[in-house]
């Protein structure tokens, strides 16, 4: 088909493979009647179904809910993405704008979804390298040569990660701890600990390992993380809104540390 024919054909109709609505009649989601099927589903389980086309097991859904609730919902306006919501609030913009912008900002190089995707990718590759009889030491060396970091290990601002203990505890409680990728992640952690460089597994790394055990791809994980920080953002917005406008960390002229060109005339 020629380029123009292809466009003319596409102009006539769109065929969706995920569903849609017949206005006034029904709604279909991935082949299921939405009103007959999803009324009692957990919303996060539905989100997973949307992202992957698969249904979570009861315990995995509980873990997703647990980690999203206790680890990805910090109401702390200092965190860079949450700070966007707080700034939107202090200038009296809308919560929706602040939260959407902050969610978009969460797609960052060293926090949010992408590093966790890269961590999942690392675990998938590491497992297949181990299966090909490479040692953990060789794998880590190779990874550092290629990517400088081991994604899922280390943390900006502070090195320790307070989320690990409750995450491990929840994984154990739900019988999700003794699975291959979580165990691999912990083995890598032990190896790095022996190096004494202060780099240990972070919550994203452990979450990525759980996702690998679930059979998720990095892209599926990315989709799942697209709105995962929004719970904390709502709280940040409200916190700042309850104070006077303009009072979220105001910055005075003297806070600018200028190191550019000297004063000059155009």
């Amino acid at each position: 088909m020629s380029t123009v024919d292809k466009l003319l054909d596409a102009e006539k109709k769109w065929t969706s493979s995920v569903g849609g609505t017949v206005p006034g009649e029904s709604a279909v989601f991935r082949g299921y009647d939405m009103f007959k099927t999803f009324g009692e589903w957990n919303w996060l389980g539905m989100f997973y179904f949307s992202a992957t086309g698969r249904k979570l097991s009861v315990n995995s859904e509980k873990f997703f809910n647990g980690i999203y609730s206790m680890c990805f919902s910090y109401p702390d306006s200092r965190i860079w993405n949450n700070g966007v919501t707080a700034l939107a609030s202090t200038v009296r913009s809308t919560a929706q704008l602040g939260i959407c912008a902050a969610s978009a900002v969460s797609e960052a190089e060293f926090y949010g979804g992408p590093p966790i995707m890269k961590s999942l990718d690392f675990f998938l590759r590491a497992k297949s390298m181990l299966d090909e009889d490479m040692t953990l030491s060789e794998i880590i060396l190779k990874e550092r040569r290629q990517n400088k970091f081991i994604f899922g290990y280390g943390r900006p601002v502070v090195s320790s990660d307070e989320r690990l203990v409750p995450m491990k505890s929840l994984l154990k409680k739900l019988d999700l701890y003794e699975r291959p990728y979580v165990q691999l992640a912990l083995e890598v952690n032990e190896y790095l600990k022996q190096e004494n460089k202060g780099v240990g597994i972070n919550a994203g790394g452990l979450f990525a390992a759980f996702c690998a055990d679930e059979g998720m791809t990095p892209k599926e994980l990315y989709y799942m993380m697209s709105v995962c920080f929004s719970v904390g953002m709502v709280a940040c917005y409200i916190d700042v809104l309850e104070k006077e406008e303009g009072l979220f960390f105001p910055s005075q002229c003297g806070a600018i540390n200028y190191s550019g060109n000297e004063k000059r005339t155009w």
Binding site: Q252, C253, G254, A255, I256, N257, Y258, S259, G260, N261
Partner: peptide, 23 residues
């Protein structure tokens, strides 16, 4: 511009683009 004494260095905004003089 010199930073105000009461603003700690780690909370400063570092830039080569923009400089301000306060009222």
């Amino acid at each position: 511009m010199q930073m105000e004494d009461d603003i700690s260095k780690k909370d400063a905004l570092h830039t080569k683009i923009w400089q301000e003089e306060p009222q």
